[in-house]
Amino acid sequence: MSIDILKNGAILLGERFVVDGHYSRDFRVITHFHADHIAQLKKSISECIGLISTPVTIDVLSVLGYDIPFKKRFGINYGIKMKVEDEELSLQPSDHVFGSSQVVVSNKEGEKIGYTGDFKNPGHGTPILDVDILVIDSTYGSPMFRRNFKNDIEMLFADHVNDSLTRGPVKIFAYHGKIQEAMRVLRKYGVVAPFIVDDKIRKVTEIAKKYGYIKDDIFTSESEEGKEIIKEGWYIEFEHFNKSKQRDGRYMNYILSGWEFGEPIRSIDSRTKVVAMSDHADFDDTVYYIDNSLARLIIVDGSRKGYAKELVSYVKRHMHRTAIYLPGD
């Protein structure tokens, strides 16, 4: 069964599907809405017959400015099989951001190729695919990327935020998807302060709410309710990660980052803390996925920022599995 990974991040599965990058094929699959997985999406919208993702992802892409024509939208829920001539595709859950998915393509002989996309919590939030060939993410594919505290981070984060709220408003900087995850975590651990957002984050969050991922009301800073909340001074405001360099001392600031491994929460100045809250599997989780996969061949995605060579070396040497990385040198 045909498979290749191109340097632009396009993953070719079977004969008719390209995933998370552009290539001249009938169907492009989008595993989730993060920037490194929607590169050249406007070109795919123009040239492909159809764009496949979960309905959630299609809705968020519209908010982010990608106008996919209705006739080209193939929004399919997890586990639904889509047949294109002699190939079959399905999306499976991925615990990354809301609406994210893994991809499985099979041919008429029954051979299956699976692509994890970005994931965390393998075997729990992310089911391990039953496939013959597995393509796996390598974002944290080196043994130096271990989060020994990952099971405690959610509660620690909520405790710190609650403590900060006793002294004034809190601002949290994160990417789309992780913002909504942070909202869910804070409510799970009893943080009840109202959420303030800008209009784009409001629109993305309303989609998460529409699909049942979160339940709480949110308020924009421009609304009358939002203005009253801000005046009272007890609230949590969310902004995109890219605005974290413009933070100021009126708030206790929290920056959510996946590239923290030494400690769960650390201070970088008197009013700013960095939180090791990642939506990616760390090295141990990645190895766990591979160890529990029955695939005869492991292909590591080396087209994105990650550690494909290191992961392949570890899998061969310590796990005695057949593994390669693509694209090659």
Rank of each mutant, 00 (worst) to 15 (best):
G65N: 05
G65F: 10
Y66V: 06
Y66D: 05
D67T: 11
D67K: 13
D67M: 10
P69L: 09
F70C: 08
K71F: 09
K72M: 09
F74V: 12
F74N: 09
F74P: 01
G75C: 12
I76G: 04
I76H: 04
N77D: 12
Y78K: 06
G79N: 04
G79V: 05
K81E: 09
K81F: 11
M82I: 11
K83H: 07
K83W: 03
K83L: 04
V84S: 05
E85A: 08
D86T: 08
D86C: 06
D86V: 04
D86L: 06
E87H: 03
E88N: 04
E88S: 07
E88H: 03
E88T: 10
L89C: 02
L89R: 02
L89K: 02
S90T: 12
L91N: 02
Q92H: 13
Q92W: 11
P93Y: 03
P93M: 04
P93W: 04
S94G: 13
S94H: 03
S94Y: 02
S94W: 01
D95C: 10
D95F: 11
H96R: 06
H96M: 09
V97R: 00
V97Y: 02
V97D: 03
F98G: 00
S100A: 11
S100I: 05
S101I: 06
S101C: 14
S101P: 01
V103D: 01
S106C: 07
S106M: 07
N107A: 07
N107S: 10
K108T: 09
K108F: 09
E109N: 14
E109K: 13
G110R: 02
G110E: 03
E111N: 12
E111C: 04
I113S: 00
I113F: 00
I113E: 00
G114V: 01
G114T: 00
Y115E: 02
Y115C: 01
Y115L: 15
T116A: 06
T116I: 11
D118L: 14
P122D: 12
P122K: 09
P122E: 12
P122G: 12
P122I: 15
G123F: 03
G123V: 05
G123P: 03
H124I: 15
G125I: 09
G125R: 09
P127L: 14
P127V: 14
P127H: 14
I128C: 10
I128A: 09
I128Q: 02
V131K: 00
V131M: 01
V131S: 00
D132H: 13
D132Y: 00
I133C: 15
I133H: 10
L134G: 01
V135T: 06
V135M: 03
V135A: 15
I136T: 13
T139E: 12
S142K: 06
S142T: 07
S142C: 10
P143D: 06
M144D: 13
F145N: 14
F145A: 12
R146A: 14
R146K: 15
R146F: 15
R146I: 15
R147S: 02
N148Y: 15
F149I: 08
F149K: 07
K150W: 08
K150Y: 09
N151M: 10
N151T: 08
N151H: 11
D152I: 05
D152A: 13
I153K: 06
I153W: 05
E154P: 04
